[in-house]
Design a protein around this nucleic acid. Structure first.
Length: 484
DNA sequence: TTTTGAGTTGTTCGA
DNA sequence: GTCGAACAACTCAAA
């Protein structure tokens, strides 16, 4: 019993599937009131709601919810699952539980912010307190403004401003104990069918990932302890594993940027030799932050060109080429390797993301939105900020965007970042027997070299769907037109 | 106030 | 083989 009688409190979980550094959960636990831990899957494709998850993200969500359920169980708690319109369901559950308040973390994402406003409104009408807690971001978008009150559009000044605010708050520990649960009816995860079946295409995802908060913390620890040395240079290499692999964990809030920031700066203080690598790593966290802040200002980032001049751009609809790109059948080994890694593992090395995106947008002149949608569906780390913003960055229509003349050369990029062809061989085994000097441009091999490697161009591996030089010139001409 | 310089991720060309 | 220049337009900060 507490000062509120036997009234309960509801914690509404969203993209914050963890128990540590969770201000809403911590505050709810401190009330001592009986507790409802709630997750609502809002699948309704309403304009104002959050963007419906892609296939790979749905798979991740299922695993993450399972992990959260298991963690809560250790505290004698349960996770209540409901599907439908959050603005209807949350007040219902709150009154069913006889709750005096609903607490949640305000993740300040476009669709979610609108939904959260509706939820708060409905709760107020029902006489139930709606209390929100600050988002996971390192800084509040409201605090990073230029003279005109707008968010910054260039990364370096943005990141300087964020850093000038000082260290982010220390992350909160996991509550020592949680109050008992209120009995509320719940869907089961099986009801939601988040995992693919018929066919089950998630084998590669299961092999590549462990979802959940504990796995996220372990990943961060391993990365800082054993892998970060040399990050500043090695992160661009495709042979070997030199990136943190934290992105999907961050996406679903299994770990917070605050936790990553403090763990990383602590590691740098212990080992001055890695200080430069840590600084580079933190700036990657800064890019995530930058894109999120951009999304805060521009909710329609996945549809609307940030630079209006691009509205006139004549993209080239080409279903056949789009499909070849999606399936990793363009005939450019570095592009195809990336697209196959994505399809198999739900992830793609960041360097290759730039190469394949540049290829779709510039070599094929296909609308960046088509690429963005494919990534949204296939990436486990598909982020409402980073994904559209990075596509716009590559296309040149975005913030701090790549200049129009930057057309990645897929052969050079391969030779530079995968010099021994390790990455290509792994994802395109049919090219594995080609010499490293040929593996990024098999069309230059002699018939004898191809035969020796067991490659038949056009059969075992496609011919290039466009010629690099011609495609580059076509892209430059098309981009020149939008400028004038 | 105005001006100036710098800005994640590249490529090609010609000297 | 290496190196510098050229390839826009815009945003922000510092002078």
């Amino acid at each position: 019993m507490n000062r509120l009688g036997n009234k309960a409190v509801v914690v509404w979980f969203g993209d914050d599937l963890r128990l540590s550094d969770h201000a809403a959960l911590t505050a709810a636990a401190q009330t001592g009131s009986p507790l409802v831990c709630l997750y609502v899957l809002d699948d309704s494709r309403v304009e104002t709601g959050p963007r419906p998850l892609g296939g790979a993200s749905r798979w991740w969500l299922a695993g993450s919810l399972r992990a959260l359920e298991a963690s809560l169980k250790k505290f004698g708690q349960t996770l209540v699952l409901r599907k439908g319109d959050a603005a209807t369901i949350i007040p219902q559950i709150a009154s069913e539980a006889n709750a005096f308040a609903v607490y949640w973390i305000d993740n300040e994402i476009a669709g979610q912010a609108a939904l959260a406003r509706n939820v708060a409104h409905e709760l107020e009408r029902a006489g139930i307190e709606a209390k929100t807690f600050p988002s996971d971001l390192l800084a509040r978008p409201q605090d990073i403004r230029n003279k005109d009150g707008r968010g910054l559009r260039v990364f370096t000044p943005f990141w300087k401003r964020v850093r000038s605010l000082g260290e982010p708050a220390q992350p909160l520990p996991t509550p020592r104990k949680l109050p008992p649960p209120v009995k509320i009816e719940s869907d089961t995860l099986e009801d939601w069918q988040l995992d693919p079946s018929r066919p089950d295409w998630a084998g590669g995802l299961r092999a590549a990932w462990t979802t959940g908060e504990a796995a996220a913390q372990q990943r961060l620890h391993d990365f800082l302890e054993h892998e970060i040395k040399g990050y500043a240079i090695k992160r661009d290499r495709l042979d070997g594993d030199h990136t943190s692999h934290l992105s999907p964990h961050l996406r679903f809030g299994e770990i917070t940027p605050r936790q990553v920031y403090h763990a990383a700066t602590f590691a740098a203080a212990q080992k001055p030799a890695i200080a430069g690598d840590v600084e580079k790593f933190l700036s990657e966290l800064g890019w995530r932050e930058f894109w999120r802040h951009l999304l805060f200002d521009l909710p329609n980032l996945a549809e609307q060109n940030l630079q209006p001049s691009f509205d006139q751009f004549k993209w080239r609809p080409d279903a056949k080429a789009l499909r070849a790109w999606q399936r990793g059948q363009t005939g450019y080994p570095i592009v195809d390797a990336g697209m196959r890694q994505l399809w198999h593992s739900g992830i793609m090395h960041n360097r290759v993301r730039m190469v394949v995106a540049s290829f779709l947008v510039k070599h094929l002149l296909i609308d960046w939105r088509d690429g963005e949608k494919w990534f949204w569906d296939t990436l486990v780390d598909a982020d409402p900020g980073s994904n559209p913003a990075s596509w716009q960055w590559v296309a040149g229509s975005g913030a701090d965007a790549a200049p129009y003349f930057r057309v990645f050369n897929p052969i050079l990029q391969g030779e530079k970042f995968d010099p021994d062809g390790v990455y290509v061989s792994r994802w395109i085994p049919e090219l594995a027997n080609l010499a490293p000097s040929l593996i990024h441009h098999p069309w230059d091999a002699t018939p004898m070299e191809l035969t020796a490697a067991g490659v038949t161009l056009g059969k075992s591996y496609p011919e290039p769907i466009v010629d690099h030089k011609a495609a580059r010139e076509r892209a430059l001409a098309a981009y020149a037109k939008t400028r004038s």
